[in-house]
Structure formats: C-alpha cells, structure tokens
Computed example of a mutant assay.
Amino acid sequence: QLLQRLSQVTGCEHVVDVGAGQGHLSRFLSFGLGLSVTSVESDGRLAGLAERFDRELLRELEKRGGAGHEGHPRRCPKSPRRRPLRPLTPRAPHHVPGRLDPTAPWRELLLPPDPPGPGPAAQNPLGGPRGSATGGQVLVTGLHACGDLSPALLRHFARSPAVAAVASVGCCYMKVSTAPQPPGCPQPGYPLSASVAALPGHQLSYRAREAACHALEEYEGRLCRGSTHLRAHCYRAALESLICNAHPGKRHLGVQTGRKAHTLSFPQYARLGLPHAGLDPARVPLDSWAVEAMLEQQHKVVAFCTLGQLLAPVVETLILLDRLLYLREQGFHCALVPLFNPRFSPRNLVLVAARTPLDMALAGLDKDSEDGDS
C-alpha cells in the first residue's frame, strides 16, 4: 500500500525495484497493483528465476481467463474491514541485470551483473531525457537492500531528478562500510549525515552492526521457551576458543555451519566449522574436559548474547536515523515508518523520502498495517 500511495501522490506509475532477488515484490507491484516495474538484480541466477516465475504466473492467468482473475483472498471472509480484491494485471516486470554503482552519476548508475551475462549491456532505468527511460519520474524501492546498497539508493535519490520518491528497507548492517575509508574507495555507508558524523563516539563496530540484524522478537520467544536454538551460541563461543588456541591470529572469522547447528553435537559442529578457519579437526581436541567445561557455561553465554540483543535496537535506530538525517539535511521530506509486524520480518522500518510532502501518502498507514495489506 505504501508504494501505491506514493504512486498516487507523485503521479508516478513506474517503479524501479533495486536488489529485487527472485522478484517477489516486483511481481506483486506489477501483477497485483498494475504498476510498471523495472526489476534490477545483480545475481543473474536470481534474475533468471524471477523471469521464470513471471512466465509461470502469466500462463496461470491465461488458463484462468487473463486479466480480471482475482486470485485467492488475502483476508478472512468474516473480517468486517475486508476490501474488494484487485484483479491481477497480466503485465510482467521488466528485468534488468546489473549492479548499482554508488559512485556513478545518476545517468550511469548500473554496472554489469556479477558474473556478467551473455546479453547486451543493461539499459539504465534512469537514463532517459528527463531521467527515466520513459521520460518521466520514477519511484525507487529496495526491500531488504543489503549492506551498502541501501545507502547507495539514498545517494542516487538525492542527486537524481528522475526519482520522485524512495522507499528503503535496510538489511545486513554488518556489511555497511564505515568511515574512515581508504583513499580511492567510495564514500562510506555509515555515517551518511553530517549530523551523526559530528557526534563524538558515533563509530559502530562490526559486532554492534551485526547484532542490529538479529530478530529480537524471535529471540525473546526462544528465551521464554528455553529453545535448543540457544545452544548454538555456546557452540560458537567454544569454537572461537578452540580456534584462538590453535591459531591466535584467527579471531572473529565468519564460520558457517548451517542453519541447524543446534541439532548437532559439539564435535559434529566443530568438524564442520574448523575447516572454515583453515584448521584440521583431527588436530584439535574436541572431547577434552576443557571443552566440556566451556559447554557447561551455556547460561552465561546466553546471558551475554541477551545483553547484546537488548542493545541491538539502539544500534539499528542510530543507523536509520543517520540515513533520515542525511535526507533531511538536503531538504527532502522523509519519515521512518514501522510498516509491518516485526515477527513477520524483523527489519520492518521503512525509510520513505520524497521531493513533495508525504502527509497524504502516510495518512492511515497504521490501519493498513494492522490489516496486513501493506
């Protein structure tokens, strides 16, 4: 509903969805809301999947009579606030393979996909006579745009007259670049604003930014249930100790052992994790009394992680307010909107900015969010 309202307020019917992944949002905007959508994705594999899903939906619409098919209800029929369902529009998004160049002028914002595809270079969706390919303004959105992609979107909005408004939901804050950057590197993703950059102690460590990405509500539920998922924290802490004992220079490495680490025994977990640190599991004692003593400290590890979770919303708020202040410093109308239930997605704060006032676009959004139609 937010993008539809922005479309109505700004008069823009063309949306550029950056970091579109498999195209789920693009598909909804195009088929569900009837908007003209350009979907930009750097991963050619995901872009290919998005086009395949589009074709499958088009075939399904043809079977059921094309335009006017209303699909499945999205609300309980007994709900007194239920609105009529919109007919689906048989118009697929236009998929553009490419990466956003945070340093390029707005007319040259796309880089080739990674890896490069066999086709011709992608046409810049903001490269027309007045900015967009069609000559009019566009809306730009990035749903869970990872790391520096969200700051790049905001920078392009700020310097591109082709973009009437932007709606950004950030993600993966630990991947955001921070000041100071080495010479020749792009501007950092944090801080963006002069206001935050001037604050003493505004720097954020990797650990702080990583903690801000966690799902606080889900973690609270695990604590209340005494979930076995909490075991993974102690496993990782014990593994860190083993890695540092074997090789003191290898600290805080990214060790991925899969999403079901809590279902493993510690030796199984360690045998999966140690190779990621360049260590041979056969040369590391995994059944020693020292390991057992560490695993008995799970309650302390969970308490430590819980303290980090309590501070995580503060860090996320600082990052998002920095982005909002960056836009306000340049005279744009902007707001942070808690658009949907954080239990559905913990990154539920949408940064909305436009060149015109947002009052009409944001009015009543809280009720729409409660209805689950945002």
Rank of each mutant, 00 (worst) to 15 (best):
T306A: 14
C185I: 00
Q123R: 13
V163L: 04
H233D: 12
G119M: 08
M174Q: 11
P182F: 03
P357I: 01
R107N: 07
D54C: 09
P186S: 10
E316Q: 15
G372Q: 00
S374H: 02
A208L: 13
L25Y: 00
E329C: 09
G131A: 03
A162V: 04
A20G: 15
H95L: 07
R99L: 04
G127H: 03
C244L: 14
C171R: 04
P346N: 13
L57T: 12
T356W: 05
G19F: 01
G201D: 12
C185F: 05
Y219F: 15
P73Y: 14
P151R: 12
E329Y: 11
V96D: 08
V138L: 00
L216S: 06
S205M: 07
D371L: 15
E51V: 05
I319D: 01
P313S: 09
V301G: 04
A208K: 11
L358E: 12
S369M: 03
V314K: 14
R64Q: 10
N245S: 14
P285V: 06
G189C: 05
L46R: 09
N124Y: 06
E210G: 06
S369C: 07
K250C: 15
D368E: 15
P281F: 00
G364N: 12
A246M: 10
R222V: 02
G32K: 00
V301D: 00
A197I: 02
P113D: 07
K250V: 14
S369L: 03
T263G: 02
G135P: 09
F340N: 03
K260A: 02
A167W: 01
P116E: 05
W289P: 08
E70T: 14
D368H: 08
A361T: 12
A133R: 04
K300I: 04
A145G: 08
Y206K: 11
C305S: 03
L2I: 02
R283D: 06
K63P: 00
L320V: 12
T141A: 09
T89A: 13
G44E: 06
N341W: 01
T134M: 01
L295F: 08
V255S: 11
L358T: 11
A162C: 05
K175Y: 08
Q123H: 05
I319T: 03
A122C: 10
R86V: 00
S168H: 02
L239D: 00
V352D: 03
H14K: 12
H24L: 07
A277M: 10
R236C: 02
F304V: 07
D368W: 06
C146E: 10
A270S: 13
G119H: 09
L199M: 13
Q137I: 06
G128H: 08
L154P: 03
